[in-house]
């Protein structure tokens, strides 16, 4: 989609241009253009998958949820009105998909195995998908080992940059709970990382 606009071309930053192109893509996708939606998918899947992977610590599940998030986005495209950047809108929607999934799952049982003892989590698969320094990989793995609630808040706050009040709203809890979970996450991460 060409995006030629008058005036502020000179001052248009690369990002601004990207955003205009993205809006063209969104408009086309809103009209049912799957090719445009594919481009939106390609531009955004990395961020969405990273979010899902870190929040679930389960690569297979993260793939399913990433798909669900885009599926949801496709069905809700008409409600996107361009108030925020598309990627922001999509990201928020992905967070909700992951949280809703957790609510609908048999998390009752997941909670039972939640413990402060930091037993090694999973088979380390999750970190193989990520790239980065040893320190970052360690942290990636340590995050995966956190209990659900603490991991959610840590990922949303420390990595994705959401504020406590936003997290509280998304998770349906109090701001104090979000802060307490963040504290807990940091304390547990320290135990693991400094071991």
């Amino acid at each position: 989609m060409p995006s030629s606009r008058d005036g502020g071309v000179i001052s248009a930053t690369f990002q601004g241009l990207r955003r205009m192109q993205m809006n063209d893509l969104v408009r086309a996708a809103q009209r049912g253009d799957t090719a445009a939606f594919e481009q939106l998918y390609r531009d955004n899947i990395g961020r969405v998958y990273a979010l899902c992977l870190r929040m679930t610590a389960d690569p297979g599940r993260a793939e399913e949820l990433s798909q669900d998030a885009f599926l949801r986005a496709w069905s809700k495209l008409s409600s996107y009105r361009g108030d925020a950047a598309f990627s922001t809108w999509l990201h928020r929607l992905a967070v909700n998909v992951v949280l809703a999934d957790r609510r609908s799952q048999g998390k009752r049982w997941a909670k039972l195995v939640m413990t402060d003892d930091m037993a090694p989590f999973g088979n380390g698969e999750s970190s193989s998908a990520a790239e980065g320094s040893a320190l970052e990989m360690d942290l990636e793995q340590a995050i995966a080992s956190l209990p659900d609630g603490a991991r959610t808040v840590f990922v949303l706050h420390a990595i994705e940059g959401y504020q406590h009040d936003e997290i509280a709203e998304m998770t349906g809890t109090a701001v104090g709970t979000s802060k307490a979970q963040l504290h807990r996450a940091r304390r547990l991460l320290r135990e693991v990382l400094e071991r």
Partner: peptide, 27 residues
């Protein structure tokens, strides 16, 4: 910890291309 978190990649590629499945689901 925060510095490391800030440095972590914001994007991670899934191990396979999910588009084909997704496309089938929206067609």
């Amino acid at each position: 910890l925060q510095a490391t978190a800030d440095a972590m990649p914001r994007e991670i590629k899934p191990s396979r291309d999910l588009w084909a499945d997704l496309e089938a689901r929206i067609s």
